[in-house]
């Protein structure tokens, strides 16, 4: 835990922070609005006593109520990993600004988050599916995307999952559960 980093972040990013800075083990976590992602990343990358120059990861998260985009950054100026949680992205129309203006490598990471969660990164030049086929219509890592053979959560914990897969192939979609079995025509 780098207490000094906390003070520096509060001084530099005071206006952008939503909620307190959270520190645990070797991680420092800040929460921001999705709209302020470009400003915050720019400050973290450019300011001399922060210098977060290595983008470790971009992850999409679906909490069930909102979407998040989570960045992990590394800097030589601190012993902590920095985690930036851009919180409160609407699940119905998830949009967030792209980080490609700073790290071009974010392009594929954002493509993956789009592929898995449907988060649209504005400013990404190449936002198309990366793992799933191009005609795929769903977003598999969303929490309302249930696996048909979700054995671990079934009452029998893997014993009775075979029964659950015996559904007619042409079963209609179930929008209430967010299940879409046939591709949209």
């Amino acid at each position: 835990m780098d207490r000094n980093l906390k003070a520096r972040l509060e001084a530099r990013l005071g206006g952008y922070l939503r909620g307190p800075i959270y520190q645990r083990h070797d991680e420092t976590e800040i929460r921001i609005e999705p709209g302020s992602i470009p400003d915050v990343l720019r400050i973290l990358h450019d300011v001399v006593d922060l210098r977060f120059e290595i983008l470790a990861d971009i992850a999409g998260v679906d909490t069930g109520e909102v979407m998040q985009v989570v960045y992990h950054l590394w800097s030589p100026m601190t012993t902590d990993w920095l985690r930036i949680v851009a919180d409160g992205i609407s699940r119905d129309d998830p949009r967030a600004p792209s980080a490609t203006f700073l790290w071009i490598g974010a392009e594929w990471l954002e493509r993956e988050a789009y592929d898995m969660y449907g988060i649209i990164f504005e400013g990404n030049r190449d936002l198309r599916r990366i793992f799933m086929p191009p005609d795929y219509t769903s977003f598999p890592l969303r929490k309302d995307f249930l696996l048909p053979d979700d054995a671990a959560r079934s009452p029998g914990a893997g014993v009775r999952h075979v029964e659950r897969t015996h559904v007619p192939a042409d079963l209609a979609d179930d929008p209430a559960a967010g299940i879409r079995r046939a591709p949209a025509s």
Binding site: I130, P140, L147, A152
Partner: peptide, 19 residues
């Protein structure tokens, strides 16, 4: 990409910590 995609993240979210 994607010819080897198995959805391991989804599988992990549906298995317990040891698995």
């Amino acid at each position: 990409l994607g010819y080897l995609h198995r959805g391991v993240e989804k599988i992990c979210e549906n298995s317990d910590y040891y698995h």
